[in-house]
Amino acid sequence: MISEKDIEIIEAYLRGELSENELVTIEEKIKSDKDFASQVEMLRDMSVALKADVNGFNQTLASVMISEERKEKKVVPIRKWLMVAAAIAALMVVFFLFNTSSPDDLYTAYFEMPPENVITRNDASNTSLDQAITAYKRTDYRQALSLFDSMNPKSTEVVFYSAMCHMAEGNHDQSVPLLESIQGTAGSLNSAVEWYLGLSHFQLGNNDQARDILTNLAEIDGYYARQAREFLSDW
C-alpha cells in the first residue's frame, strides 16, 4: 500500500528534484520492489493522462468527423468507447458558416439534443431507466421525462437528461432549475451543464445570466469553452 511519503518522494523523483543519495535509494527500490516500480509508473502516467484535456480532444475530433461527413451527407457511427465524446460532440451543431440573424436562429444553430448513450446503467435490471432511454432514443421526450421523473434517487445523468427533455419540449423554465441543481457536481458533464444552462437562459431572454454563464465557460479549456466563445461572438 502506497504511503503519503512514498507519493511525495516519487513526485519529487519524477520532477528531478531528488538529491544524489535519494536518487540512488529510489532507483534501487524501483529495481527490487515490483509494486513500488508500478506505483512510480502509475504516478508518472497520472501526471500526463490527467493534464491533457482528452475529453476536449475526443469531443472536437468526433464533432469534426460528424461535420466533415455531413458535408458528404453521411452519418458517422461513433465508437462506443468514445460515447461521451460523441454524445457531447453531437450536442452541438456547428454552423461555422452560418450568419445568424435572430436569437431563435442562433439558438437553433447551436442547440442539438444529445444522444442517450452517456447514461450509465449501474443496474442491469433497471427497467425504468431502459424504458426511459428507449423513449429518449425514439425522441419521445415526454415519455422519457415521465420515466426519468419516476426514478428515485436520480443520478446526475438522469437529471441532465430530464433537463434535455425539457429543452426539447421548449420548457426552458423547467430545464434551468434542473441544470442548476447539478451545476459543478456533474463530473464529465460539468461543461455540458453550463453550456445548456446558458442556452436555456438565452431562450428565456435572461440575457445577462446567459452571457455570464457562457462567458465563464468560455474562459476554461475544452470543447464547450470554444462553443461558448463562438456562440458569444455570433451573438
Binding site: E41, M42, D45, M46, S47, V48, A49, L50, K51, A52, V54, G184, T185, G187, S188
Partner: peptide, 26 residues
C-alpha cells in the same frame, strides 16, 4: 492504453477528488 486506464479510474472518483487532482495537475 495506460493513460486510458488512468482516465477511466479518474472518472470513477468523486467530484471533490476530481477537482483537487485537476487543479493539482494543472
Amino acid at each position: 492504453e495506460r493513460y486510458k486506464l488512468m482516465r477511466k479510474g479518474f472518472d470513477q472518483l468523486g467530484t471533490e477528488c476530481q477537482q483537487v487532482l485537476n487543479l493539482f495537475f494543472e
